[in-house]
Structures are given as structure tokens and as C-alpha cells.
Design a protein around this nucleic acid. Structure first.
Lengths: 337, 337
DNA sequence: TCCTGTTTTGCATACCTGTGCAAAGCTACG
DNA sequence: CGTAGCTTTGCACAGGTATGCAAAACAGGA
């Protein structure tokens, strides 16, 4: 087990100074001859620069922290994978943190603190909020933060979401055009901006068309809660359901069909939100609003990179629009194929 | 934006030396009085030890690298989340790497190299192999590796899998007991030990009972491939299908029901492997072999921790047994509720 | 009180690289 | 050949912590 080979070893073998080696590997200017000698010696010795020492002195770790609440909803693994790939190809690495289910808000701060300890260059929070105190701390440490799929009103943090309000509105217009009049809504968690915006856009568009919601229940992005909510709305005799995300929509469809013996969309139309891959499966054929994961992730990555490279860059709010994908789980307006 | 506060600042304020501060925070022995003064000064200044500097000198980063091929199959996000939680609670952090889809084997080595650069203390490879050269390099660097859900014959690396051979055998015995005679198999990727073992256990148990496979097709853990494989087997008139994992089994069930107009299990019994949460959903009710994720992750984490703490610890192979979960997608033997 | 054995403490150094600074080397031009 | 301007190079140090070593402090027993 050989000891680690350092820049000094390479320098000695190449007949140059350690600084020369450093310059070659950090891309600073050096003569062609020096570069050649150093590269050769490094190759022979199997030298690789020590990332820790480099980070210690430059203050940049080339690590981005990624906080994620839960990976049940397939939307998040998908996003996570894309984030990881994107950062990797930009020369960054991803440090993953999962929030414990107990006391998530409380723990989040501790977790972010640990990230700061590791001197991450940037932070992505997926569906997770950040206390003002901690946000200030990140700002003070010069660490840019991007909120992914979650807004935080009044904060100066960069945010990337889909156009949730517009998405909710699209669903409302579509259901009305299809002739539905008793429309129910199983909302996402109202503690999240994402959930609130979808609900709000939906309700406002209904009102604008002169209709009111026949019933609304909170689904909290939870399987069981969604099913109970569906039961209550069905008792209330609705003929269409807008569900806060696909994941809950699947549960609702299964429940309606197999437990309650109803047909979708003949008895009840169901519309979801996200367009996860499973929505296209033959067993569900879920009509849903697409969240363009790819573009959302790209936007978030771009925003973070911009801020990491230019500390004075402004943090903005980005809303990415996504289409309503028509499939079989909701009745279609007359004359629409 | 205040400059970083170091151990020297704390030392000055507490009236002790920097070493004293270091000792307090690294848990070495110190007098009660010193501890009190240091803690107090640190609190007042908001001091936090610099992880990079610490890692640089100790050679241990308290980071574990995690390589994952793809997160489509919900088995992996689930495992990933548990890994992350487990390591977090042990004071380790998780660095995530995803393999690019192109040239995965080639890229894997580069990725692992990058992890070594970051001086990770340990490595978890989920469904990913490691070239012998690189395995040797990890060993030389004293970095323990655990293969998760993937074996590698002839390697000295620690491995945690489920009892794939036994699982395949259980399925065979169950199908025979239920009276199936024309049995088909859509295998997992035969380049992976996991896929091979399931197939092999299945076939051997069939033979032991005096039967032969009516047909076998490679599914490669891929949605589309699985569907095409199912078509070919159905042409071949099978009345039962053992599918290499749940993810493919869902695709197959959808295809049989909605495209081919067949009933499951009346026309064809379908059995999967993994028991992901979705298998219990009313839309599928998939009979499947459970891979006990929780226990598998715990075993992998324990194995890694053991090796990280005691470098001379032996790397072993662990197979975790899982039951066949009976649901509605496969016909049951007479007299079995 | 003196001596021995045990803690505690501070000093100095190591870990490994990036970078400011000044000296040295080189090119080109008059 | 001299000099100005530019590039390359080496020196020395910084970044923040852990730790071996020796000195100091302390506890206890005779």
C-alpha cells in the first residue's frame, strides 16, 4: 500500500518546482515543455491532485448540496437523476441529503448547516423550504440557493417551478369544456406553494367561467389521504376530480375502479399533475399536466451555475409552462379527437 | 460578510491554545474547565470546525460514495433514500453518482476515480460492477466497497443481494403447485448476477420437479423489451410468466390486458420480483418475491461501516432471503387461501 | 516534603495545494 | 548590444486542522 503521491513527487521527477505542477493541473499558463514533462511524470507516478487540499485553499469545493424530502413520488428520482447528470457534466459533484420524516423543518436547518460545513458551492432544495435565518446564513457565506418545485414568498432565493397556477387553470377550462359541472378537487399539501398555486389557479379559472367547486379535500401528497378524500367527494356526487399530483391520482383511480366499482372516465373523470412516466402506462392513461422535468432541471442548474460563477448575479423566479396531456382518464370536449 | 472564524480565534478568546480547541472538538481528552471555556467561546463566535482541513489531515472524509445506474425502477430510489438516511445517522454523508447511459462500464471507472479523488471513506455500488483494475486501486487506497444487489464472481468485494436463486425456485414451485405446465420466463439482464441467479434458480427448480421451461426471453429490465418478449411467449401459448422484476411485470400485465385482451390471472399468471410499493396497488395486485430493501440496506451499511472502522475486517457475501408475496396476479394452488 | 505516575497543555509540524511576488528567461526592436 | 515588454519559473507562504512530543500541572502515597 503505497503512500499518496503528491505534487512534490511529480515535481522532483519532472525536474521542476511544485508550483509548476500546480499550474499545469490548474490550467494556468506554462510553457509547452514544462507541461509535457509534468504530464509525463504525473502519468508515470499515477498522480492526481488532492481535491481536499485544493478546496481548502480555493474555498470552492465543486460540490453542490441537494436536499430532498422523499423519493416516493417518481417525479423526484427523475429530477434527482437529471440534476446529478447535469452537475457531473459541468464538473460538479452532488451531495445528497434526505430529510428525516420527523420534524422535517427543524432538521432541515441542521442538514443545511452540515452542508455549509462541507463548503458546498451551491444548494438545491427540492420541495423543501428554508428558514429565513438559514437563508441569511447561506447568503453571508456566499452560497447560492435554488428552490426547486417550491416557491417561498418574500424570499430572495432563486426559484424554479412549473407554471402551477396556469396549469391548474388549464385543467379547469378543459373540464368545463368537456361539460363537467360537479367538479371536485383533491389538493396537494397546502403548506407548499406548489400545492396552493395549483389549487388557486384551478379555482380562479372555474370562477372566471362562472362555476364553483363542488368540493375540495386536502390530499397532502399522501396515498391514503387521497383515497379518503376521494371517498368523501364521491359521496358528494362529483363527476370529475382534479388531483394534486399523479401519484395521488393513481391511487384515486385504483380506488374508484376496484373498490367503488366506478368507471374512469365514464362515471368520473380524473386529471393529475406531473406526467410521470407511469401516467402513460396502459393501466392508467392518465390525463395530466406535464411538468417538464428536463427543462425545469436545466433552468435550475443554469441558475445555480450562473450564481456560483458570478456571485453578484441576481436570483430570479422562473416558471416553466407545461401542456395538458390528453389521455383516456378524462372525458374530452365534443369535437376534440 | 465576516471572514471565517477559525480555531485560533476561539483559542484566543478562551485563553487556551489552538490544540486545546482542536481536542475539544475532536473528542480527545481535556479538562472539564477547558472544555467549558472553549465551548463558550465557540458558541459566542459561531465557530464550526472546517471539515476540509480536518479531512485533509486525518485522511478520512466521512463521505461515502454511492453509484447508481438508473432510478427508473422504484426499487432504487427507495434503497437510495434508506442508504442516505442510514449514513446520515451514522455521521456520514452521501455523494451521489449516476452512470451516463452511454458506455456505462467505461464511465464507471472514471466516476470511481473521481470518488477516490474526493477521498471517500467507502463506496456503495448499486447494480453496478467494477473492473478488477479499479477494485485493486480501491483496495490499495484502503477504500472498502460494497456491491448492492449485484454480485461479482471471483471478486473479493463485499456483496449484499437478496437470495435470488432461492427466490426463483420459490416461484417455480408455486407455479407448478398451482397446476401451470406451460411456463414462460422473461429474464432480467443476463449480464448481471442478479438476473442470472433468478433465472437459474427458477429453471433448476422446474427441472427438479420434472418440468422444462416452455420459453425464455431476455427482458433486460427494459419496458419495451419486456413487452416484445411477452408477445413472443404468448404466441408460444404459455399460461404463466415469471418476469425478472416488478417494473417489467407491470408493463407486461398492462400489455396482456389492454393490448392483447387477456385476463390476469385467468388466462395468464404473472409473477414479478422486488415487491416495490406499487405491486400492492389495486390496479396490479402483483404476486412477487419480496426483496427486503430495509434489511438489505442495513446489511450493506453495516458491512461498510465495519470495514471502514476496521480496515482488516473481512469482506463477506450476504444473501438476504425474502418471501413470495401472494396477491392476485397469479393463480393459487388448490386449497390455498 | 519528595517522588512517581497520570493528565493536561502548548509548541511545532504535517497534510497538499494555489498564488502573490520578484527574479529570470525570452523576444523583438532600435 | 542594450533595453523594454512579456512570459515563465521558483520561492515562500497561506489555508485550518490534528497530533507526536516534551514540558507542565496535578494527584497520591510514603
Amino acid at each position: 500500500m503505497s503512500a499518496r503521491v503528491t505534487a512534490f513527487d511529480v515535481a522532483a521527477r519532472a525536474g521542476v518546482s511544485q508550483s509548476a505542477v500546480s499550474r499545469v493541473f490548474s490550467g494556468a499558463s506554462a510553457s509547452g515543455e514544462t507541461v509535457r514533462k509534468v504530464r509525463e511524470a504525473a502519468e508515470a507516478l499515477g498522480y492526481r491532485p488532492n481535491v481536499l487540499a485544493r478546496s481548502l485553499i480555493t474555498g470552492r469545493s465543486r460540490i453542490v448540496g441537494m436536499v430532498v424530502a422523499y423519493l416516493d413520488n417518481p417525479f423526484y428520482p427523475d429530477a434527482l437523476e437529471r440534476f446529478s447528470r447535469a452537475f457531473q457534466s459541468e464538473g460538479y459533484h452532488t451531495m445528497l441529503f434526505t430529510l428525516p420524516e420527523s420534524a422535517p423543518e427543524r432538521e432541515c436547518d441542521r442538514i443545511v448547516q452540515q452542508m455549509l460545513d462541507h463548503q458546498v458551492d451551491g444548494l438545491v432544495l427540492a420541495s423543501v423550504g428554508l428558514s429565513d435565518a438559514l437563508a441569511a446564513r447561506c447568503a453571508a457565506a456566499g452560497i447560492p440557493v435554488v428552490l426547486f418545485n417550491r416557491g417561498q414568498s418574500g424570499s430572495a432565493l432563486a426559484q424554479v417551478t412549473s407554471a402551477n397556477r396556469a396549469g391548474g387553470a388549464k385543467v379547469a377550462e378543459f373540464l368545463i369544456a368537456a361539460g363537467h359541472r360537479r367538479i371536485g378537487h383533491i389538493s396537494g399539501w397546502q403548506g407548499s406553494s406548489t400545492g396552493r398555486d395549483r389549487t388557486q389557479g384551478f379555482i380562479e379559472a372555474l370562477r372566471a367561467a362562472g362555476w364553483e367547486l363542488a368540493g375540495i379535500e386536502e390530499g397532502r401528497y399522501d396515498h391514503g389521504a387521497a383515497i379518503r378524500a376521494a371517498d368523501r367527494l364521491i359521496e358528494n356526487d362529483v363527476d370529475a376530480l382534479f388531483v394534486g399530483n399523479d401519484h395521488m391520482a393513481f391511487a384515486v383511480m385504483d380506488h374508484l375502479r376496484f373498490t367503488r366499482g366506478l368507471s374512469v372516465p365514464e362515471d368520473v373523470s380524473v386529471i393529475g399533475y406531473d406526467d410521470v412516466p407511469m401516467a402513460a402506462w396502459a393501466g392508467y392513461e392518465l390525463t395530466t399536466v406535464r411538468q417538464p422535468v428536463g427543462r425545469m432541471v436545466s433552468a435550475a442548474v443554469a441558475a445555480l451555475l450562473r450564481q456560483m460563477e458570478d456571485m453578484s448575479a441576481q436570483a430570479g423566479i422562473e416558471e416553466i409552462d407545461g401542456p395538458l396531456i390528453l389521455r383516456g382518464s378524462a372525458r374530452r370536449p365534443e369535437g376534440l379527437t
